[in-house]
């Protein structure tokens, strides 16, 4: 499908151009999500896109679906309600690193634990962009932010490891540079039954890059290109060799009972007992 056809079909064109800064990765990820939805062949009328608060969470407003822009950190809680009330709907959550890993961290691990059929795409730009560049739980330790003028003290999360440990059944990491792979990873997540999670290493040239010697979007994508190691290549490297790098691709996949399907069995059991 051409870009014109994609935009016509899947976006609210009258809301574009978007509010994001020059070189921001959010538009690349939103484009990848749209292409992945198309590739996975989801039913547009039966798809709900839910977000929290932050730059990335503005994405659903540009997308021609049923869209829900919730409170900060709570997208997964709202999405859980949508999915439980109407399990036939495809529910996609678009969230940022602060939204999902800090204020929404509790909801993230519990949604993963339940293995509820949601597809979560995290726009990880290592920073709170909407409020002007404060550090998040994913800001690499030692980097600079407006609230870390001497460098961050906090250790940063590996979100994919966290979600995997919590019980997520599809876990992947992509980048805005490796766009084709990203589309495939999101598409595979959409096709997976259960809690699917895709972390996208993205760029905020305005608030992260400028403070951390990556002064442009181009420099930040170069950094991604140099530091990302595909899963297969990573398997052949020692931890020493992987130091300072990050692994991209499908990191984890397993089959496990999905929450709404198990609950449907509860309903059947409760109704059977009533007879």
């Amino acid at each position: 499908m051409s870009i014109e056809e994609l935009l016509e079909r899947y976006t609210r064109r009258d809301k574009l151009p978007h509010i994001w800064c020059p070189g921001c990765g959010n538009g690349i990820i939103m484009g990848a999500v749209i292409r992945a939805l198309d590739q996975a062949g989801v039913d547009q009328k039966k798809t709900v896109i839910v977000s929290g608060i932050g730059c990335s969470s503005r994405a659903p407003g540009y997308m021609k679906f049923d869209t829900l822009h919730t409170t900060h950190g709570r997208a997964l809680a709202y999405a859980t309600g949508v999915k439980l009330a109407r399990p036939e709907l495809k529910v996609v959550v678009l969230t940022g690193d602060g939204d999902c890993a800090a204020i929404g961290g509790n909801h993230l691990i519990h949604a993963a634990r339940r293995n509820i059929d949601l597809t979560v795409v995290v726009f990880n730009n290592d920073i709170y962009g909407m409020t002007g560049g404060q550090y998040s739980p994913l800001t690499p330790q030692g980097s600079y932010a407006t609230t870390a003028p001497y460098g961050t003290v906090d250790r940063n999360f590996d979100l994919c490891e966290l979600v995997k440990a919590a019980g997520g059944t599809y876990v992947a990491r992509g980048t805005t540079y490796h766009t084709r792979m990203l589309i495939d990873l999101i598409s595979a997540g959409l096709g997976h039954k259960g809690f699917s999670f895709i972390e996208v290493v993205s760029q905020c040239p305005m608030y992260y890059g400028r403070k951390n010697k990556l002064a442009s979007a181009v420099a930040m994508l170069e950094w991604q290109k140099e530091h990302a190691v595909p899963v297969k290549a990573a398997a052949k490297l020692t931890p020493e060799q992987l130091k300072g790098k990050f692994v991209i691709g499908e990191l984890h996949r397993e089959e496990a009972p999905e929450y709404t399907e198990v609950y449907a069995e509860v309903v059947a059991r409760a109704r059977g007992e009533e007879k």
């Binding site: 839910v50 829900l68 409170t71 709202y78 859980t80 309600g81 439980l84 009330a85 909801h107």
Partner: peptide, 8 residues
């Protein structure tokens, strides 16, 4: 949050 999602 879940209550609001379900209602929607």
């Amino acid at each position: 949050g879940a209550v609001i999602g379900a209602s929607l």
